[in-house]
Design a protein around this nucleic acid. Sequence first.
RNA 1: GGGCGGUUAGCUCAGCUGGUUAGAGCGCCUGCCUUACAAGCAGGAUGUCGGGGGUUCGAGUCCCUCACUGCCCACCA
Length: 954
Amino acid sequence: MSSELPKAYEPSLIEEKWARYWVELGLFHVPTPPSGEASAKHFVQLLPPPNVTGRLHMGHMLNQTEMDILTRWHRMRGETAVWVPGTDHAGIATQMMVERQLAAEGGPTRTDLGREAFTERVWQWKNQYGGAITEQMRRLGVSVDWSREYFTMDDRLSVAVREAFVRLWEQGLIYRGAYIVNWDPQLQTALSDLEVDNEERAGKLYHIRYPLADGSGAITIATTRPETMLGDVAVAVNPDDERYKSFIGKALVLPLSAVAGGSPREIPVIADAWANPEFGTGAVKVTPAHDPNDFAVGQRHNLPQLNIMDELARIRVEGSSYDGLDRFAARERIVADLEAMGALVAVKDHALTLPVSQRSGAVIEPRLSIQWFIAVNKEPVGGGTSLAAKALAAVRDGHVRITPENYTKTYFEWMNNIHDWCISRQLWWGHRIPAWHCDACHEILVARETPTVCTRCGGTVLRQETDVLDMWVSSGLLPFTVFGWDGSGKLTPNLSAFYPTDLLVTGFDILFFWVAKMIMLGCHFMLDVPMPDGSVRTLEDAVPFREVYIHALVRDAERQKMSKTKGNVIDPIDIVTNYGTDAVRFTLASQASPGTDIAFNEARTEGYRAFANKIWNAARFLFMNIGRAKEAGYEVQLAKDALFVIQKGIFPAVTGKVFAAKEALTDGTPFEAIWIFSRLSAVCLEIDHALATYRFDEAANAVYQFFWGEFCDWYLELVKLRLDFSIELNTTTALTLSALVTAFEAALRLLSPFMPFLTEELWHALYAVIEQPPPAKSIALTCYPRANDFPADAANVAAMNTQQSLITAVRAKRKELGVPEKETVPLRLSGMDHTKRAVSNHPEFLTRMARVSGITILEAGEPALRGPNVAVSPEFEAEIVYERKVDVAVERERLVKELAKYEKGLQAAGRQLGNEGFMAKAPAQIVEGLKRQAAETRALKEKAEAALAALPKG
RNA sequence: GGGCGGUUAGCUCAGCUGGUUAGAGCGCCUGCCUUACAAGCAGGAUGUCGGGGGUUCGAGUCCCUCACUGCCCACCA
């Protein structure tokens, strides 16, 4: 292979190849260390499992980009980087998906099929389509360990889920009972509070008169859901409400409650502080079976619970004329009937927040039903603190650190007000609750193995509970179940080596759904598992992860939240197809910093595609020159210690484990080579610091700025004046080429966590060009550049800075004077000694970069250069010898503007320097700096004044 | 009703514990096909850092306040 890379970078030509290569060679597989082996420094992460039904969205892409950058970075730093991927069975979503599919096919419905056949269908679906999202992940090249991939319904995980359930039950932390839950009448299942959204809707507040049974008057109540009055069992008033004191204890006749052939029900007026005198009429109807507040009131007053709806939210009151009506139809009928009988006192507009199912969009009906709960605030039987208490302590005591920090507060707020967790779902797809009901005595048996005999009555007809577990139960156990936890209390080799995991990267939307559950369950179950050294595990090491990084939301270019209804959803795969994975990754990384949402703008991605192309072309330049060197008879080879040299070259390029550019410097090392190494060294520090603090944006920007703004803009340009293949075996050329290759190869490694595809391609191409086998199968398996690998020469960098500012100033002045770009001009230079020295040491920089034909450096005694042809800075005056074609008016305007700027600066400085307080209190270095700057500004001002005076009048 | 954030150049955002005269990318203007790259090169313009007050020698940076604007949580019928 030679340097024949296409002129423009075409990601589609290489990405698929490498994505496959990484997976097929299993490059990111980390074997389980033998039991008992001390674990090396590791970096373990668990991928937040996407739903099997899912397609990759921008949130996933951001999440995975961040995780992948960190994983690759840690891996290249020599740590054992384990990233465990997997998918979630996603109970409701998957069941809905398959039901829809059945409906589309016109085949049997779920209920037609029955439980067993239906779940079989879901498995079929999962096996056929469930890999879509992981396929997308493979395409993105995320460096997960695929051999560790899990599915939350895998046998091994299911066994662990059952074990966890049984143990919680045995510890008295799981109970079953009739409570008000959020009922989704469409899906016909209970939902947790978190699965319910509250939506603002315009509604009505109905005032309804309930007459006293003794005919002595009436109470008017206010309600937004009049249909539930069929289930009323009381009316509550505030005990301190003077208006109603006399009513307390009396009986009311419940309107419309008469069923066929009967008379209306009577209900009592009770006193309860729940009734708010300020709201509505101050009297509230009490419907314990259909409202959580009323449920509580009912418990306090021992009221009956009257369930008047079925699971489809249809009215079910035998003998009532409303029987069988849908709740909303019933509402209309009831309101009309009340109006007809004169009981409807008023209807007022009322803004209300309606609970809506996140899953189906149906209006939630609070419903009394029998469900299973985890008691999160209860102490387990046999001692210990509650789940919530442990989870609070884990974060409070710093065993789990949350970034950005302000989420810690949110976490505490939530954890302090946490309610019991409803874990049962009336679905068929999921982990079926391991409980059996005895037909004979109704005893509930919770067991690891399917029981055959009732332990209480010896009955043999046992039916397994039909409910399944909330999906977050199984995913909440993942940090230890993926490493083989089986409840036996044994430390598996994987747990020993990899638990607790190091970092969890996730979105805030599942902080409570998932993160909090993992902390509760991890702290609870892992406390029983001994440490690798056999000692007792404490909370510090029971936590599921040491750190949580909560990433921001990816919005559209207008900062709108992406949503299907708005139609502004950006499909990452589309963008990746257009611009390449690396460019999209870089776009996300360049904006990813803790707590800041990302506005995804394609224009930005276009910019990073250009960056990829820039890198590509830098490589072409390199390869072209290596090709020339070979033609010119230079020897290109690897040295003994896995380094390669060119001719008698000096710079070890590469990698494997050793890298020692620093030691390899010689007297002949070109100035600009030392400079680029010094810069590399500094950038390494910047990147390490940035990534250690989740400043992906800073890291990305640092490497971007380095590669484009320094390596390409300056170093490559300067290199051009060294490379001379016309002379046989020129040492300078050899040294330059060695340094160039060395620096480039290091830059590729620096870039590779951010742009894995491009860097992999070019890295292999580089070795192909020098006809040597690469030192590793992948750039991802080499080591990350460290600051110490390179020389850092401050004096060199300072001199280079001087050269750069001089070159820039001359270029600007040339432009101002209208010198044609190709024309070379003589230059005269006065100014400070260090500037003169920098230029006389390397006049070729100025000559090449600013197209200067001859340089005259004025002696120390000579007067400083002045005039409109002089480019000035505090450090130098550089005169371009050229007959200017300058517009005097324009030049005057420019100078006047410049003067004003200097004047403003001087005034600002003068204010401070003339301020006694400042002089007395400000640190010396600040004062010094300000003085120096003021002096410089004054000098510039004088120079500008001189130039202005020298302008012809006109 | 509680809690958390945001407001800096036309756009998207940096600006770390207050310290010299506020930055980047994109866009915009001017000139260049300079033997890696026009997805490029060189040069340039652009901000009363949301309003007001305060603390300080010194304030995008800290405090108060107002305005606008997101987001999360919440059982007020």
